[in-house]
Design a protein around this nucleic acid. Structure first.
Lengths: 191, 191
DNA sequence: CTTAAGTCGAACATGAGTGTTCGAGTTAAG
DNA sequence: CTTAACTCGAACACTCATGTTCGACTTAAG
């Protein structure tokens, strides 16, 4: 934390955090949100926003980095290496569906606005956890092997996205999301 | 067809068709496409475009109407009322996954640009076919009843969308899409 | 308390998309 | 062949988002 960087004042630090928080919400809820909207939502002047993040692109990248890091943490806490693959997948869905969905939405946005190339690698960090888990399940014989692992990962993310949308539009309660997801995904994935 | 309307010249008719074709492609591939881009893709001047569709909104609505109508036709041809519900669902996926996916993408776009209210009704026309099919399957005992029908419909569309994206990015061959979809959806939906 | 760091509103420059108007040129239809 | 329908490029007015600059004001830190 305490690097030899130029030291920043406490209020600057606070504003940066507020901006990243607001940007995450707006980018995932309404991808085409303007810088003005983000500044307002963060309770900050437009100039301040630009002084910390010189362009929309830089801001998007910062939000992406932070979210990927957080998603990584959340996934690690779900311990995808422990217990049977099915158990681990259940744990992952229960604790991480929200984080994984944010990751997905940001990834879609970044793919459009930054181009496909620039985030492949960072994207991998998160997706690999899911893919690794599924591969382990295939080796254990509990996950189907008649379809490419790649497609199974897509299935997980696709349904995650669908469930999160339903929660957003109020057709599904947030507490039920994990149950519904589990009940749909497990039969789709098992051998 | 031959109403008492002001009769249009043949080249106008041709241009309108070209515009709708181009707009469908661009709207589904790149939702934020500009009117300029659409005009160019249709091989038509900007003024001509505006003379037929006075605003982006009107154009979007026209594309939506036409696509919903076409999707309705395609679905009807798959005869969702005939045979067992499982058989019918198989037929539907095999013949209509592409049309259903176009419908979904346009619906997402319209929801953002026209607001949620204005297309609920038209949207229903297409979704009801799928929902009706699933309800019938539930009555026949082949489709699960432990989850709301609503969610099952979402599952179908969610995976449809995921598969279509994979086809777009070249990770899945178009010929395989229906097979993969069927292999994933049937276990997820059956009781 | 002093000062450097940070904030903020107002104003400006730029670029891109939308929609309109004009007028000259094409083209289909009778 | 005549005419009305249609096309199309150029130019314009308008809005909206992005960034930048200026100068005055506030606030944290030593």
């Amino acid at each position: 934390m305490a690097t030899t960087e130029t030291r920043r004042r406490a209020d600057a630090e606070r504003n940066i955090a507020a901006i990243l928080d607001a940007a995450l919400v707006l980018f995932t809820e309404e991808p085409q949100s303007s810088m003005v909207a983000i500044a307002r939502a963060a309770g900050v002047g437009r100039v301040t926003l630009y002084s910390h993040f010189p362009s929309r692109e830089v801001l998007l990248e910062a939000v992406l980095d932070r979210t990927i890091a957080e998603a990584g943490e959340v996934i690690k806490k779900a311990a995808p290496e422990e217990g049977s693959a099915t158990e681990a997948l259940r744990r992952l869905l229960r604790t991480s569906w929200h984080a994984l969905n944010q990751h997905r939405k940001l990834f879609d946005l970044a793919q459009r606005e930054l181009g496909p190339v620039r985030l492949r690698q960072r994207h991998r960090e998160v997706v690999d956890h899911v893919e690794g888990l599924l591969t382990r399940g295939q080796e254990e014989g509990v996950i189907r092997t008649d379809l490419p692992t790649n497609w199974l990962v897509t299935t997980v993310y696709g349904l995650l996205h669908a469930a999160a949308d339903e929660v957003n539009t109020g057709q599904l309660k947030a507490e039920e999301a994990a149950d519904v997801l589990e009940a749909t995904l497990l039969p789709a994935l098992r051998s």
